[in-house]
Amino acid sequence: MDETGKELVLALYDYQEKSPREVTMKKGDILTLLNSTNKDWWKVEVNDRQGFVPAAYVKKL
């Protein structure tokens, strides 16, 4: 969790967005987890953008 109590995830792999609903991340990025109710796609925030990334590409910290 960060200082505001939000849950964080670590990008395990690079991911290039394939639609406007997704976000690009690089391996090693720390992202804010917004929603993990879907087992396949998690909603995150990175670089002031919100979108989805494959759940298998990130790990909760």
Rank of each mutant, 00 (worst) to 15 (best):
G5P: 14
V23G: 02
K27W: 03
N38F: 08
L34G: 01
K59G: 09
K60I: 12
T4R: 06
L8G: 03
P54Y: 02
E7M: 12
K27Y: 04
E17N: 07
T37N: 13
L12Q: 04
K6A: 11
M1K: 12
G51S: 02
V44A: 01
A56Y: 09
T4A: 13
V9S: 03
D48K: 10
R49A: 06
W42H: 02
W42K: 01
Q50F: 08
T24H: 04
A56F: 08
G5V: 14
N38R: 09
F52S: 03
A11Y: 01
P54E: 01
D2K: 05
V44Q: 00
W41S: 02
L61V: 12
Y13W: 11
L10F: 09
I30A: 03
I30E: 03
V46M: 15
V46E: 04
Y15F: 07
N47P: 08
R49M: 07
N47E: 13
T24C: 06
L33P: 00
L31F: 07
G5C: 13
F52D: 04
T32S: 08
D14T: 06
L61K: 04
W41R: 02
L12H: 02
K27L: 05
K27T: 07
K60V: 12
T37I: 08
W42T: 03
M1D: 15
K27E: 07
L34T: 04
I30L: 07
T24K: 03
K26L: 08
L31W: 03
S19F: 06
K27Q: 08
D29N: 06
A11L: 02
N35H: 07
V9A: 11
K26Q: 09
N35A: 09
W41F: 06
T32L: 14
Y15A: 00
M1V: 14
R21E: 12
V46K: 15
K6F: 13
V23N: 04
Q50H: 08
L33D: 02
G28T: 01
S19L: 07
L33Y: 02
W42V: 06
V46Q: 15
V9G: 11
M1R: 10
D14A: 06
Q50S: 11
W41C: 06
Q50M: 09
A55R: 12
G51P: 00
S36W: 10
M1H: 13
D29W: 12
L31R: 00
L8T: 08
D14L: 02
L12C: 07
P54V: 02
D48W: 07
D14Y: 04
A56L: 11
L33A: 02
R21K: 10
L31H: 03
N38D: 15
V44C: 05
E45P: 00
T4Q: 13
K6P: 13
E22P: 05
K43P: 01
K26A: 08
V44F: 00
L10N: 04
I30T: 06
M1G: 13
F52L: 08
T37E: 14
N47Q: 11
V9Q: 01
D2G: 15
N35M: 08
Q16N: 15
A11P: 00
L8K: 13
M1S: 13
N38E: 10
D14H: 06
L10R: 08
V23L: 15
V58L: 15
I30Q: 04
G51Q: 02
S19K: 07
W42I: 05
L8I: 08
S19D: 11
Y13G: 05
T37L: 09
F52H: 05
D48C: 11
N35G: 06
V9F: 06
R49I: 07
Y13K: 12
T24S: 15
D29F: 04
K60F: 08
L34D: 01
K27N: 04
E22W: 03
I30R: 05
D2V: 15
A11F: 01
K43H: 11
L10K: 08
K60W: 07
Q16A: 13
G5R: 13
A11V: 10
L33F: 03
N47C: 12
K60M: 10
I30W: 04
W41M: 05
V53I: 08
Y15K: 00
K39L: 09
K60Q: 08
G28I: 00
E45Q: 15
A11H: 00
G28S: 03
E3T: 15
N35Y: 06
P20I: 09
T32F: 11
K43R: 10
E3K: 10
L10C: 09
E45L: 10
K27C: 07
T24G: 08
E7T: 14
A56G: 11
K6W: 11
G51M: 05
G5N: 12
T37K: 11
V58N: 00
K18D: 05
K27M: 08
E22S: 06
R49T: 07
A55H: 03
K60P: 10
G51N: 01
Q16K: 13
M25Q: 01
T4G: 14
S36L: 05
R21Y: 15
K18T: 12
V58C: 12
W42L: 04
G28R: 02
R21T: 13
L10P: 00
R21S: 14
Q50G: 06
N35V: 08
N35F: 06
V58I: 08
Q16C: 11
E7S: 11
E3G: 14
T24Q: 04
L10Q: 11
V9H: 03
K18Y: 05
D40Q: 13
A11C: 12
K60E: 05
V44H: 00
G5I: 12
K18G: 08
P20C: 09
Y13H: 10
Q50Y: 06
S19Y: 07
Q16V: 14
K6D: 08
D40T: 13
E17D: 05
D2W: 15
G5F: 13
K26G: 04
K18P: 04
L10I: 15
L33G: 01
V53S: 00
L33M: 03
L8F: 15
D40W: 15
F52A: 03
K27R: 10
V44W: 01
V9W: 08
D48P: 05
T37Y: 09
K27H: 05
A11D: 00
M25F: 11
Y15T: 00
Y57D: 03
S19Q: 07
G28W: 05
V23H: 03
G28H: 05
E22D: 05
A11W: 02
Y57T: 07
L8D: 04
F52C: 10
R21D: 12
P54Q: 02
N35W: 07
S36F: 07
L12S: 02
K27D: 02
R21I: 13
L8C: 10
G28F: 05
K6H: 13
K6M: 10
D2L: 15
F52P: 00
V44E: 00
M1F: 13
K18N: 10
V58R: 00
T37G: 10
Y15C: 02
W42N: 01
G28K: 02
N38P: 04
E17M: 12
L61Y: 08
R21H: 13
V9T: 02
V23F: 13
F52T: 03
A11I: 02
K27A: 12
A55Q: 05
F52M: 08
L10H: 04
T32W: 13
D48V: 06
D48T: 10
V9C: 13
G28N: 06
R49V: 08
E45F: 06
S19M: 07
K39S: 11
Y13A: 10
Q50L: 07
V44D: 01
Q50A: 12
L31I: 07
M1P: 13
K6I: 13
A11Q: 01
Y15H: 03
T32Y: 12
E17C: 12
V58H: 01
T32D: 04
E17W: 05
E45Y: 06
W42C: 04
L61W: 08
K26D: 04
R49W: 06
V46F: 15
K18S: 10
R21C: 14
K60L: 13
L31V: 06
P20Y: 09
V46Y: 12
L8V: 08
N35C: 10
E7C: 13
M1Y: 14
S19T: 12
V53R: 00
L33N: 00
K59S: 09
D14P: 06
N47I: 10
D48A: 11
K59A: 12
R49N: 06
L12V: 07
M1Q: 14
L33I: 05
Y57W: 06
I30N: 02
E7L: 12
W41D: 01
E45S: 10
V53P: 01
T32I: 15
L12A: 03
Y13F: 14
K39A: 12
Y57P: 01
Y13N: 08
E45M: 11
V44Y: 00
L33S: 02
V46H: 15
P20E: 12
K6V: 14
E3P: 14
W41L: 03
D14N: 08
D29T: 07
E7D: 10
L8S: 07
E7H: 11
L8Q: 10
G5A: 12
